Computed example of a mutant assay.
Amino acid sequence: MRDDGVLLGLTYVPEQQLVGWHWHDTDGFVESIACIPEGQEDVLYMVVRRNINGVQKRYIERMESRQITSIEDAFFVDCGLTYDGRNTDAAKTFTLSGGTNWQFPEVVTMTAVGHTPFTAGSVGVDYSLKRQVIDENGDPATEIVRVEVVGYTSPSVVTVKLLIICPVSLRGVAVSAWARQVKTLSGLGHLEGKTVSILADGSVHPQRVVTGGSVELQEAAGIAHVGLQYISDMETLDLELKNANETVLDKKISVTGLTVRVEESRGIFAGKDKKNLYEHKTDRDDYESPIELLTGQADIPISNNWQGKGRVFIRQSDPLPLTVLAVIPEVTIGGR
């Protein structure tokens, strides 16, 4: 921690004699820190002074774990909160029945077993139901259906409108993997007036300004993380290639492509500098499920010129994880 409120970090790998400093930016001033063992991790707590809606406030904040089990649980915002409407009791299930074509906007019956969650006020509430299946390639996959309550019958029975096509695996089957979805996220008064980043059901949501302690989502979500954005940047050093004892530091270098090896990452932007960034694009067939994290190689074509010395700039500005293991540039070397 520096005197100007910037939080410092140190990467230390003794077996490789590696020591590297970095700093953590936040919309505030870090006044105090403490590291406390919790289970298998050492957790950092901080006292952070922030200017909220023109008023100076101090918050005790805890740095979130970096161990991610699913993209929906990726928490990469500062001073944030989480809404989690997922069911955690396997005995509490929902079953959809009575469908004909099982397509939007057909109305079907949803029956609860092991709980009585419905009231007359449940009309208008959205739910998502999921089930793990094996796809045609023999790989595990998740099938999803989203529904909106349109009629109340009893505390355990409602009628719902299908918001998307209901997969066969979710028809007439008791499902315990469900979530109550919301469109308005409240309880955010500690960030009043701030522009916040949002990860909703594992997908990046457009930023919102907190007004009256709440934000409105484009679509209802079952799990959402909301907080202050922070931007993570890295830049390589000038490229040096030795060939037959000849250096390239005095030659013109152009980087025309880039391979970034990553672990459990998404939202990768790269380029010759922060003003010329290109996103790693990911193909997807299923727009209901979030894009999975990538472990492997991300190939990014970038635009460069002969003015630099082979440096590469990588940025993460979304509330998503990015762990860079290696940077492999595609280089063209010219004359002096």
Rank of each mutant, 00 (worst) to 15 (best):
L162I: 00
W21S: 07
D84I: 01
M1D: 06
Q132N: 04
R86P: 07
L239I: 01
A34R: 11
A90Y: 07
D25M: 01
D78M: 05
G54E: 14
G114C: 07
F313R: 10
H24E: 07
V182F: 11
K57Y: 02
G80F: 05
I33M: 02
K57A: 13
K275V: 00
N245M: 02
D89F: 00
I268C: 01
V168M: 04
A220Y: 07
D233T: 13
C166F: 05
I314S: 07
E31V: 02
V312N: 12
Q218D: 13
G98F: 13
R315P: 06
T153D: 15
V160M: 13
L258S: 00
P167N: 02
G98K: 12
G54N: 15
A326K: 04
G121Y: 03
G20A: 14
L294G: 02
T323A: 00
D84F: 01
D201K: 10
L237G: 15
D78A: 12
R208E: 09
V157N: 06
D126K: 05
G85D: 12
Q132W: 01
Y45T: 04
F75K: 05
L322C: 03
L241S: 03
F104E: 00
H190G: 06
R66T: 05
V48N: 10
H225S: 08
A270R: 00
I302Q: 06
A74N: 07
V47E: 13
D135K: 01
A244K: 11
V331A: 01
A34E: 03
G227T: 05
P321V: 09
V147N: 09
D201M: 09
V327T: 04
P140T: 08
S197Q: 00
T69P: 01
V312E: 08
A220Q: 12
A326F: 10
G5A: 07
D73V: 05
D126W: 04
R261N: 05
K194A: 01
G202Y: 10
D318S: 01
I300E: 02
T116N: 14
D318M: 11
